[in-house]
Design a protein around this nucleic acid. Structure first.
Length: 270
DNA sequence: CTGGATGCCTGGGAGC
DNA sequence: TGCTCCCAGGCATCCA
């Protein structure tokens, strides 16, 4: 999926299309993408959109009457907004909303790892999000330390655990470990206090930069207006296995941690 | 309880 | 070109 920076860019780009707008109609093309009640009411039909919230990689579309629709983009999910409806024969468009102003918002997800989760109330949303760790964009050192304490798994595995830290995926886990100078295979509970502090700062830094650059587009990701992100060209390690380290020139090592491809510099990261 | 492995899907690229 | 294989931003679920 898009990770936190990509979801945040979807949120920001979707906001002008939806805020204050009434959902005039909803068309469900593929119902099994919806987890929960599959009624138009659950999909916010007739509601006026008040806010778009984000926690980690999850996006919540919140109607003024309290209904909420949580959107998860999975690996290849998109929310495409615009004046023109998506092609009727696009097999990957699963739900289409039309606002009273005539804007269409399409949830498109070829791989279908994403989904929609209707929530009856903001309280239900809060309860759902209690299962997520603190949002990575503003992670504090103490909060990260608490999440890593007592965990024997690799620090990267812990960073990918949304209950520990919400928003980091494979790209930004590797990038943050590189910036912090921490090897991703280190046992989470063995990091020193200053290493955890560096890691927290690195996470915030890389995510803020990625948000500002519009996110990382590897192939599928675009924001609600169809714009690709520009941060992939700034990746120091992700996707650069066996290439020279941008900092020291050593050959970057590639391995597997938590079943995910992992790239790091053995000279810069300890 | 924790943490590792598996499966869910489609599509693109590499290699033959 | 065409075919097969491998890999990909995530995460729920099933095991040890």
């Amino acid at each position: 999926m898009p990770e936190l920076p990509e979801v945040e860019n979807v949120r920001r780009s979707l906001l002008p299309h939806l805020r204050g707008q009434r959902i005039a109609s909803v068309a469900v093309r593929r119902a099994d993408i919806i987890d929960g009640p599959r009624t138009h009411r659950a999909l916010l039909a007739g509601g006026t959109i008040a806010r778009l919230d984000r926690r980690g990689k999850q996006l919540a579309i919140i109607a003024a009457d309290g209904r909420v629709l949580v959107v998860h983009l999975g690996m290849t999910g998109q929310l495409n907004a615009g004046p023109v409806p998506p092609r009727a024969n696009d097999p990957h468009v699963h739900v289409v909303w039309t606002t009273a102003r005539g804007t269409t918002i399409a949830f498109r997800d070829p791989r279908r790892f994403g989904g929609l989760w209707p929530q009856a109330s903001v309280a239900a949303l809060a309860q759902r999000w209690e299962g997520l760790g603190p949002d990575a964009l503003t992670i504090a050192p103490e909060a990260l330390a608490a999440g890593l304490a007592g965990s024997r798994r690799a620090v990267k595995a812990a960073l990918l655990d949304q209950a520990v830290l919400a928003g980091v995926g494979n790209i930004y886990a590797d990038e943050a470990c590189f910036i912090a100078g921490v090897r991703p295979a280190r046992k989470a509970s063995r990091l020193k206090r200053e290493e955890v502090a560096r890691l927290a700062e690195a996470i915030r830094t890389v995510l803020v930069r990625a948000v500002d650059a519009g996110g990382s587009t590897l192939r599928d990701y675009v924001n609600a207006d169809g714009r690709a992100g520009q941060f992939a060209s700034e990746h120091a390690v992700y996707g650069r296995g066996k290439q020279p380290c941008v900092r020291c020139g050593a050959t970057l090592r590639q391995t597997t941690i938590a079943q995910r491809t992992t790239v790091y510099c053995a000279r810069c990261q300890h």
